[in-house]
């Protein structure tokens, strides 16, 4: 499903070179719940962005479903992300002027789906995360956990093959965090989605089908 070969990313800060990701080689299968742990600054976010095509590697390739995404243009990448990848962020990143349903809709808009169908789909997605009764609320009126649920609904809007979550529980208390992780796990089980979660939180690892640790840009598997 996901295949990284010799994946490296080096940032140049003047004279200094920061090797954020060093020669990562791994494969993630369909339906896996893959958890990456690591201390701050170890290169987790960088790796996730490389996998999602938000950043280009200095070296190596990323293949998703047999497609080398490092060869795609910006616009092709945008289209590819639309169909194949859903993102969940630590800070939720909902659009503040749009209500919950519209935030989900925003992710469907680029597919050109007719408005009525789009609204129905957005409502179904909100139902799946238990937010259907709060669809008309603006993000500012929602709690962190509620916002993250909307964000997950948005990430799943176009039924992507891969969901990339960067510390989805980072801004939440343990109880809410657990609920979010459970939700992600359940959704991946129901839809057969591949989920890669980056986290500091130890309780997340318990849900993993596979675990890896990031240290100074080097990815090592636990087992």
């Amino acid at each position: 499903m996901i295949k990284a070969v010799n994946l490296s990313k080096t940032y140049k800060m003047g004279e200094k070179k920061v090797e954020a990701v060093r020669k990562a080689n791994f494969e993630v299968d369909k339906g896996e719940f893959f958890v990456i742990e690591g201390v701050s600054g170890s290169g987790k976010t960088t790796l996730l962005y490389l996998l999602g095509g938000l950043d280009r590697p200095s070296e190596g390739t990323v293949e998703i479903d047999g497609q080398d995404i490092t060869r795609l243009s910006e616009n092709q990448l945008a289209k590819f992300r639309l169909k194949n990848i859903g993102f969940v962020f630590q800070t939720f990143n909902l659009i503040p002027t749009l209500n919950a349903r519209e935030n989900v809709e925003a992710a469907i808009v680029p597919t050109g789906m007719p408005a009525a169908e789009r609204i129905e789909r957005a409502m179904n997605l909100l139902k799946a995360v238990g937010m259907e009764n709060r669809w008309h609320h603006l993000p500012g009126k929602l709690s962190g956990g509620e916002q993250q649920r909307v964000a997950i609904a948005r990430a799943l809007a176009n039924n992507p093959k891969v969901v990339l979550a960067d510390e989805p529980t980072g801004d939440l208390d343990t109880k809410t965090g657990l609920k979010i992780i459970e939700m992600l796990k359940e959704l991946s089980l129901n839809n057969g989605q591949t989920v890669i979660v980056v986290t500091h939180a130890p309780y997340v690892a318990e849900y993993a089908t596979r675990r890896a640790k990031m240290e100074d840009g080097v990815l090592t598997f636990a087992d």
Binding site: N75, A78, K79, R81, K83, F87, N93, I95, A106
Partner: peptide
């Protein structure tokens, strides 16, 4: 920037 970035992440094209 953040908002624009999110739009890009969720698949909005440059034209969009």
């Amino acid at each position: 920037r953040n908002e624009i970035g999110v739009l890009k992440v969720i698949g909005w094209s440059h034209f969009g």
